[in-house]
Simulated scan of single mutants.
Amino acid sequence: MGSASEDRAAVGRRDRDEEGRARNARPRDGLGRPLPYGEHGVDRQPEGVVRRPEETVAEAQALLDAGKPFHAHEVFEDAWKAGPEEERALWRGLAQLAVGLTHAARGNVTGGARLLRRGAGAIEEWTGVRPRTRSYGMDLAGVVVWARELAAEVEREASAVDAGARAPRLSGRAVGG
């Protein structure tokens, strides 16, 4: 993260990376919401990291358990973008679930429920059809159930959820704490 003066200088102009793509250097909280320049935020996940699938699952689970689904989404996004073509839908679906949990934790009922269901639909295609070795030890059927139940709860309660307490268990038990 840059100095406070660099952060203030960024106000009023769009942050860009070396290729000219938009990038926002503002600090963020644990749910990925931008904070004012100069405030201390949560360290961001490095982008473009190539991990083995098992490392992706472990790192994302640790972030989910810590109540940081926005950051877990970035880990899944790396796998989605860097992984084999035939697995991209799986990782994209997991990223959608993490974003859905992020929105649900922020109190965005509609967006949270919609992304949880969209991610569940994408992952459901991997349950029972794909070889077990391609699920990397994840309980995908359980994760689908978790996502659909949470989507229904978010709509019914119409209030923010605790991201850490409601994090999915990617392996074994599908619903957190």
Rank of each mutant, 00 (worst) to 15 (best):
P27E: 11
A4G: 10
E39Q: 15
G41S: 05
R169W: 01
V49F: 09
G164R: 06
S5I: 14
E157P: 09
W126G: 10
A141G: 06
V109L: 08
G119F: 11
R134W: 09
V42I: 08
L97P: 00
A167I: 05
N24G: 04
M138H: 06
E87Q: 13
E155L: 03
L150C: 01
W91D: 03
G30R: 15
Q45A: 14
E59G: 11
Q45I: 14
P84C: 11
L116D: 07
R33Q: 10
S159W: 11
G41M: 02
V57Y: 05
V129C: 07
G83I: 03
A158S: 15
G172Q: 07
D78S: 02
L140F: 05
H40A: 14
L150Q: 02
G137R: 04
L140H: 04
A58H: 10
L116S: 07
V129I: 11
T56W: 07
V145K: 12
A98V: 04
A174R: 13
A82C: 09
S3Q: 01
A58S: 08
P27A: 13
G176I: 02
W91S: 08
A105V: 05
V144M: 03
G121P: 03
M138D: 01
R23P: 07
A22S: 13
Q61N: 03
R88K: 05
V175C: 12
H103Q: 08
G30Y: 11
A104L: 06
R114F: 14
R169Y: 05
A4H: 10
A58M: 10
R92A: 09
A113R: 05
W126F: 14
H71V: 01
E47W: 12
P36K: 05
V129L: 13
L35V: 03
E86G: 09
P69E: 03
G41I: 00
S5D: 13
G41E: 02
P84F: 13
P69N: 00
G111L: 01
R118F: 08
D162P: 06
T110W: 15
